[in-house]
């Protein structure tokens, strides 16, 4: 306060100045605080390519409240994967992130970045890197991925640190050639940590497989859905009236195999020969006809190799059963 001498008519210049100064200051600070607050709201929108280190909260707002932007995680990252957002980056200033296509997370077993965090913004309860969920890989461009052209690539499948679990190869029919297979990479959220090595390794100029924030990548099945086969497995039996077995009017001595081989000669003795059981259960149900490739493609391929047909002399029918089937009429 400058002066207190009262002027005429009770006018007090010191008090007036104090008031106007105070109001000016408060208004200025409120303006700045408002702008900063708005900025903070916008800063929550993390670009999809920016991935937080292991153990960071899924909720970006929570992470930005816990991280004090010290960079100790960056310092202890042995692969220089992590970096701190600089002024002008799209990521909230000073917070750690990485871009998978530049340097992916190498998934250190001892989690040095999490241990370095002084505030717990990287959750210290995360002790196994396999449990981290930095994001989720998505094969986002099926048009460009050469596996969908029938070319053998499988680089993402092979580079995956959670090999065979986070990405599996599903064999599908190649309709273009009619006789080849497509080996389609499929990501499984149960095991994908979002490390980004697949995105880094993708051979395209622009990766067809990308790690995205989980919230962006994951769908969610409505809570009211009940999958019949799961219900059946849980209950130990069918919960509805079982279907009556299908009856086929097959030629005598023939049987029909549903696994893709079609009409086959029945085995002597009448019992239908079961198709050869897979040597190891595939970890995931196949998407299309054909088994998925498990951890070792060579063993997983085995079940679909056809057993040799019995010699023609053992059957009273022509070698090609279709001749019997189609006798007397064209298709």
């Amino acid at each position: 306060m400058i002066g207190n001498e009262k002027g005429q008519k009770g006018f007090d210049p010191g008090r007036r100045r104090w008031l106007t100064d105070g109001l000016r200051t408060v208004a200025g600070v409120a303006l700045v605080a408002g702008l900063v607050g708005v900025q903070q709201r916008q800063a929550r929108a993390l670009p999809a390519t920016a991935i937080r280190p292991p153990g960071a909260a899924d909720d970006e707002a929570l992470f930005q409240g816990a991280c004090i932007r010290c960079g100790l995680c960056v310092r202890d990252c042995p692969y220089d994967t992590l970096k701190l957002a600089q002024l002008g980056d799209e990521v909230a200033l000073g917070t750690p992130y990485f871009v998978a296509r530049d340097i992916p997370c190498e998934m250190c077993d001892d989690l040095p970045c999490v241990k370095a965090c002084p505030t717990g913004a990287l959750d210290p309860e995360l002790t196994r890197i396999e449990d981290s969920r930095m994001g989720l890989a998505v094969l986002i461009d099926q048009e460009s991925c050469i596996a969908f052209q029938g070319l053998r690539c499988e680089v993402c499948f092979n580079i995956c640190p959670v090999r065979g679990k986070a990405i599996s190869l599903n064999k599908q029919h190649n309709a273009r050639s009619g006789k080849h297979a497509l080996f389609i990479p499929v990501v499984h959220s149960r095991d994908c940590t979002g490390c980004g090595k697949c995105e880094k390794a993708c051979i395209l100029d622009e990766a067809a497989i990308k790690v995205l924030p989980i919230a962006l990548a994951k769908g969610l099945l409505g809570q009211h859905y009940r999958l019949g086969w799961e219900q059946k497995a849980d209950a130990g039996g069918s919960l509805v009236t079982p279907d009556t077995p299908h009856q086929y009017n097959l030629p005598e001595g023939m049987r029909y195999e549903h696994g893709g081989r079609g009409l086959l000669p029945a085995e002597p003795g009448g019992a239908a020969v079961p198709s050869p059981a897979p040597s190891a259960p595939a970890p995931y149900p196949a998407l299309g006809p054909g088994a998925s490739l498990g951890p070792d493609p060579s063993s997983a391929l085995a079940p679909d190799i056809m057993p040799p047909l019995p010699p023609a002399a053992a059957s009273p029918f022509p070698a090609n059963p279709l001749e019997t089937l189609n006798r007397g009429g064209g298709i």
Partner: peptide, 28 residues
Amino acid sequence: LAAVSGGLAWELVNPVSMVYRGLVFGMG
């Protein structure tokens, strides 16, 4: 601001921490 926004809002604009972080980690 931190209480209302749930994040360290001031640290988006704080020149003091910005400069030191910039010197040590990269200025932008």
